Structure formats: structure tokens, C-alpha cells
Simulated assay, not measured.
Amino acid sequence: MFMSHDDGLCSIGELAERAGITVKAVRFYSDNGLLPEASRSAGGHRRYGPDALGRLRMLRSLRGLGLPVREVRRVLDEEEDGAEAGAGSVLEDVVAGQLRELGSQLTALRWREAGMRLVLECPPAERADRLRLIGAVAGPPNTAPLARFWRAWLPPRMPARATTAFLEVAVAQPPDDPTPAQVLAFARLNALVTRPCTGAERTQPEAHKASEARASAALYAGLAQAYELAGTQLRRGVEPHSGEELDSFVGAYASAYDSRDTPAFRGLLAGQLAADPRIDRYWELTADVITAPGGPPEPTPGSAHDWLFAALDAQTAAAAG
């Protein structure tokens, strides 16, 4: 480092010139404790030591990555301490945090872009409605309204762990890079769950009203397994049929109600499920949100339930005939 003084120290102007930045920037870093000065001259001017240029270059590199001042201070403090164990861990944590934040920002931008395309490409008569729909959705989109919808719909006695497990499969996770169609589907889904509930959207199915918390948890855990099995068949394009999937489905209800899986029980269950309220629109929109562009529809708990119910209905109808 070039020093113009016998004591090996340089002025703020000399340091700024050597680093290729403005005096104002050096002063800002000093005032914020990021670049300690070695001393002051008799006239009160800042003087910097031999290590200042290296620290300043590191500081500029960190700031060039977009790190906020508080995070830069953490990294520089660790480097100054020279800790042998875990050296560089603060830098890794800080950069990882910034990468997560950038990922969220990029996702938000992609959603904004897809939303704008949605408005631009729709017929003029539909633009006001499209703007209203997508304007109610934050970017990145927030799934909290969907979770609230299900928490109000699920049995009140459901254990927290069982509720969380159900929400993981019932709440649509929006893609990071959506198409305009996926943005529209999620916006409609958001509108569906945030408007006042009526009819089927308010009523808990009778077949799901287990009498105890443990029974509710067992029912939904069993249904989740049955839906996963049915989802495999749906992806293969297999028509509803009797088998392991249907046995798992009926078994979940039988276990929850401490009943045996008999032909009579299956007949009663089929009748109850046929009469229960449905929220098909939720599952249709969910499939639109999570299905990859140009790909086959992704199974949802709703479509898996329909597949299983169709298999049960066909079996009980055949037994009755």
C-alpha cells in the first residue's frame, strides 16, 4: 500500500484514491464502524493503517454482492477475530441468507411477469376482472388463506400434527416460475377460499365426523395413504377398480369408526359419501396450479377421492345387482 507519511499511515483521500472509490464512501464506512481509523492528525483528519486497503477491498466486494451493512460487519468481525474453528461460517450463513432472499425476489418477479401477461393477453372485456383477481394475490403468493380455509373445515378435535400433515397435501404450493394460466388458477383459488363460505364449503362431511380426536387423526392418516395409492393409478391413467387402493380407503373409515370392513359397511359408506357435500372447485383449481405446463393433470386429494369413490360405488352397485 502506498504511504506518503513517515509513520506508515495514509489520509482518507489517499486511501480512497488507492481503492478507487470516493472519499464520501470511505467516510461512510468509517462512520459505521466498518473501517476503523488508526489515528487522527493534529488537525483532526483521519489516518488509516496498512491493513485498511485490504479491509476496504473486502468490504466493497461484500457490498457489491448486495449484503446489508449489518451483515458485512458480521463477516468482517469474524475475519478480524481470525477464529480457526468454523472460519468463514458467518460468510456462508450470510451468503446463503441472501440467496434465499434473492430466490424470493425472483419468484415474485416471475409471478408479476406472468400476471402482466395474463392481463395483456386476455380479451379487453375480461381485463377488469383479471386485474381484480390477481391484485388480491401477493407475490410470491401467500398460501395462508388456503390453510385457514382448511383449518375451519377440518374437525375441531383434530390433533395439531394430523392437521399439519393434511395441510401439506391439501394446500396447493404455487410454482416458482408460473405460467399465466397458473397465476389465474391460483388467483381464483385465493378468491374461492377468502369469500364467505356457504353450502358445501361450510359443511364438514358427515362421513368425516369422527367422534374423538384420535379417530379423526386415524381417519385422515388412513385417507392420506389411500389417496397416495390412488394417485399412482391416476398418473398411469388406470380406471377406478377394486384393489389395495379401495381397501385402504374403506379401511380408514372402518378404523375411525371402530367398525369391520364388510359388504354392508361398504354399502353404507358409499351412500354416505354420495350424499356428503363436495368442494370440487377447490380441487379443480388446485390441479391447475400444480400441474406442469403441457403435462397430465397432477393428482390431488380431491381427484384421488373421486377415483376411490367411483371404485367403491361400482363395487357396491355390482354387489347389489
Rank of each mutant, 00 (worst) to 15 (best):
R236W: 08
A19W: 11
D51R: 11
R74H: 06
T286W: 11
L99Y: 08
L91D: 03
N32A: 12
G115T: 06
R266Q: 06
C197S: 03
R27K: 00
T143N: 00
R27L: 04
G294S: 04
E80A: 15
N190D: 11
W283G: 01
S11H: 07
A254E: 03
C10V: 15
D77S: 08
M3Q: 13
S30D: 15
L273C: 07
G115V: 07
T22Y: 09
N142S: 12
I290S: 00
P296F: 09
M158I: 15
R110V: 05
V94G: 04
A114N: 01
Y282M: 03
E113H: 14
M58C: 14
E298F: 10
A274T: 13
M1F: 14
R214P: 01
L59Q: 07
G231N: 09
L76P: 10
H305G: 00
G20D: 05
V95L: 02
R110G: 03
R63S: 13
T291L: 02
A264P: 09
E212I: 07
A314M: 04
A218I: 08
G88E: 02
V193G: 02
P141C: 03
L268H: 13
R236A: 15
D77P: 09
I279M: 01
E14W: 03
R157H: 14
E121L: 08
E284N: 09
A152V: 02
E206Q: 13
P123H: 02
A185S: 11
A215L: 10
A200E: 09
R202G: 00
R40I: 11
I21C: 13
A318L: 12
S39K: 04
L273I: 12
A128T: 13
W307H: 15
T194C: 07
T262G: 05
T107D: 08
D306R: 02
S89L: 14
D258F: 08
E228R: 01
S61I: 09
L133W: 08
D280V: 12
P141T: 05
R63I: 11
L99R: 14
G82D: 06
A218M: 08
S211E: 09
V69P: 06
L62Y: 01
Y253H: 14
E121G: 10
A304T: 10
R235P: 01
G64L: 06
A274H: 13
M1W: 12
T194E: 08
V72H: 05
V72S: 03
T232D: 14
A254Q: 00
G321P: 12
R60P: 05
P301W: 01
T198H: 03
V72T: 09
G251T: 11
Q105G: 10
A191W: 03
L106M: 06
F309R: 12
A217K: 00
L268C: 10
E113P: 03
H5D: 13
A210F: 00
A314T: 06
C197A: 06
G66H: 04
D306G: 00
V183M: 02
L308R: 05
T163Q: 06
A230M: 12
L246G: 02
H45D: 11
V238R: 10
H5I: 03
A25G: 04
G20M: 07
G86N: 13
F309K: 06
L109A: 07
R236S: 13
L285H: 00
P141Q: 03
F28W: 06
T291W: 01
F28G: 01
R47G: 04
L106Y: 04
S104M: 08
F249L: 11
A85E: 15
H241G: 11
P140M: 11
G302F: 06
G135V: 01
V94Y: 00
E298T: 14
E71G: 04
